[in-house]
Design a protein around this nucleic acid. Structure first.
Length: 579
DNA sequence: TGCGCTACGTA
DNA sequence: CGTACGTAGCGCAG
């Protein structure tokens, strides 16, 4: 009997959790609701064999378990990421097994491992106890197992997988215990928190795939752009320094007096006084109004732009982050920060618009760009259950009906909505804000409630169930700056829910692409934008897919709210062209 | 070397 | 109107 049949007979069926601990090159440990199994063999081949069962691959982290499979060319279908779900459920800032295990069992979190050594504690002397297994007598995970001690032995890997399977059931039970915020969830269907856990897990896997695949650049296009903006690639450090000096000189010769360090804001401020400009700081937006009348300022601002590209997105950036295959690769986070947005390093999330023509599909392929329109106000309408705002969110442009309701013009309506969502401090849209309160009381009440929870230092949960900690040290908020908690919480419930919707959409697009030919891939996630790299022949199908998946996702995510989500979708050879 | 500040790119 | 994130160079403290 083959392995797949064996597990099928043991009750592992489509969508059922199957925990896997990968021992690279040696085998895998498996565990499911009814048993465990240590399998010797190439992990990728084992995974391929079991894929016919369509299990929900369950692992402590995609980074550890899925990376070797992805690197070997295996693309898992569905998964459960204990780290990702643990962060979601418990509001953790880290996703390690010791933390998610402790949180699920209501125990104090082990101290954060790090370069900074801490005072010795009970957590530091587990090795003597480890012989017994992964769980210590005090209920915490043994640190040698957490550090991967199980990976030396396939039977240990099976024990590690068994523990994963157990924690998966506990997490699932906790998720099922959360209230479903949707007014019209289909009876008998999974709750929103469980569905969000699936999406978070998929996002964690997608992060691993994005790191592996990278973003395709075109060598000729990108080097051409850079050469035009910052000059040709310097031959050596001396040539680089000379070009730098030449760039500085162009600016300095416009100012009277001795040269100064343009990279030092304090002396730049002094420099500006030489041409009669006195400013509190030298930020670009503040200097912009002088640029039209002052050639030195215009030159300085142009220098800043070039300097930004030269230092952050220049030749050394290419050398550090672009492979010989001309793929730009960075590290991806699936749920960083307070709100749980995806993050990326290596400039993937802040690539200047001028460089986007350098992001190009490979020959025979195209890029499909899809971005959600007005996603945050639509999310607000859905999560607050405000019938009036939801009615507005049925339109392609929801600011038009909002303007009508507020009896103002569209730009004012937009500012009023944004001011309400993010807690404005300056009084530009005061009157419109009062009209908002009248027109959309439920949405405004929802935001105010989040703000009050934040001010009081009470944790909040997003629509999808992410716990946002507002306790002693919420990330991004200085302890003691209690007024900051309010806006932080107000923002987190909207931005966080939007991130959850986006990831659910991305997960379903990923699943849909897996059924298409020619290895179409998601190559970039940018908060409300997806970029797909697909065969030319599959472009129309990909466009249809992102649209139908948005409709399907919104159908369950915003069930009963009446809110529509819209996407702008386009196809092109370069990222810039697909706009 | 590590950290805060200033500045700026993206959503 | 606000929030989030990553990156880089500077000055300063250690």
């Amino acid at each position: 009997m083959g392995l797949a049949q064996e597990l099928a007979a043991a009750g592992v069926r489509r969508g059922a959790p199957l925990a896997v601990a990968v021992v690279p090159g040696r085998g895998v440990g498996l565990a499911w609701a009814g048993g465990t199994r240590a399998v010797v063999g190439d992990p990728r081949q084992v995974a391929e064999q079991l894929a016919v069962l369509g299990p929900r691959w369950t692992w402590w982290s995609a980074r550890e378990a899925a990376r070797p499979l992805v690197a070997a060319g295996f693309r898992p279908r569905a998964c459960w990421d204990l780290g990702a779900v643990g962060m979601l459920l418990h509001g953790l800032r880290r996703s390690g097994p010791e933390a998610v295990w402790a949180a699920a069992h209501g125990r104090e979190l082990p101290p954060e491992p790090g370069p900074r050594s801490h005072a010795p504690s009970l957590f530091d002397l587990p090795d003597a106890e480890d012989a017994d297994g992964p769980v210590r007598a005090d209920g915490q995970l043994a640190s040698s197992w957490v550090r991967g001690g199980w990976a030396g032995d396939i039977d240990d890997a099976a024990r590690w997988a068994e523990l994963a399977a157990r924690l998966q059931r506990q997490q699932e039970a906790l998720l099922r215990g959360l209230p479903d915020p949707r007014p019209a969830a289909a009876p008998g269907s999974p709750g929103l928190a469980l569905l969000t856990a699936y999406a978070e897990s998929a996002a964690a896997l997608l992060a691993v795939e994005l790191e592996h695949d990278g973003l395709p650049l075109d060598e000729e296009a990108m080097t051409g752009l850079l050469a035009q903006m910052i000059g040709p690639r310097p031959a050596d450090a001396a040539a680089e320094a000379a070009m730098r000096a030449a760039r500085d000189e162009r600016v300095l010769r416009r100012f009277p007096g001795p040269p100064v360090d343009l990279r030092n804001p304090a002396v730049v401020r002094e420099l500006l006084t030489r041409v009669g400009i006195d400013v509190p700081d030298t930020r670009s937006w503040r200097l912009e109004r002088y640029a039209a009348t002052s050639a030195p300022v215009a030159e300085l601002l142009a220098w800043r732009k070039t300097e930004r590209v030269a230092t952050t997105y220049g030749w050394s950036w290419i050398d550090r982050n672009v492979g010989p295959d001309w793929r730009l690769r960075g590290e991806w986070g699936w749920a960083d920060g307070g709100a749980g947005r995806m993050t990326a390093s290596a400039g993937l999330h802040n690539l200047p618009a001028e460089l986007r023509p350098g992001v190009r599909a490979e020959p025979g392929r195209v890029l499909v760009r899809a971005d959600l329109g007005q996603v945050e106000p639509r999310v607000l309408a859905a999560v607050s259950g405000d019938a009036g705002l939801a009615r507005a969110a049925r339109e392609d442009d929801m600011y038009a009906p909002v303007a009508a309701a507020l009896r103002c013009d569209r730009p004012t309506a937009k500012v009023a909505v944004l001011a309400a969502m993010y807690g404005q401090t300056s009084g530009a849209a005061g009157a419109a804000l009062r009209d908002m309160e009248r027109a959309y009381p439920r949405a405004l009440g929802f935001l105010r409630a989040a703000e009050e929870e934040g001010r009081a230092g009470r944790d909040v949960r997003t629509y999808g169930g992410r716990l946002v900690r507002l306790g002693p040290h919420p990330p991004g908020v200085e302890p003691g700056r209690v007024s900051g908690y309010g806006r932080y919480a107000r923002n987190a419930v909207v931005q966080g829910a939007a991130a959850e919707l986006f990831k659910a959409w991305a997960a379903s697009v990923r699943a849909g692409l897996a059924r298409m030919d020619g290895e179409p891939r998601i190559v970039l996630c940018l908060h409300d934008e997806l970029l797909l790299h697909v065969p030319e022949a599959g472009a129309d199908d990909a466009v249809a897919l992102v649209r139908s998946m948005l409709e399907a996702t919104a159908g369950w995510w915003a069930a009963g709210s009446g809110v529509r989500f819209v996407a702008d979708v386009s196809v092109g050879h370069s990222w810039a062209e697909a706009h």
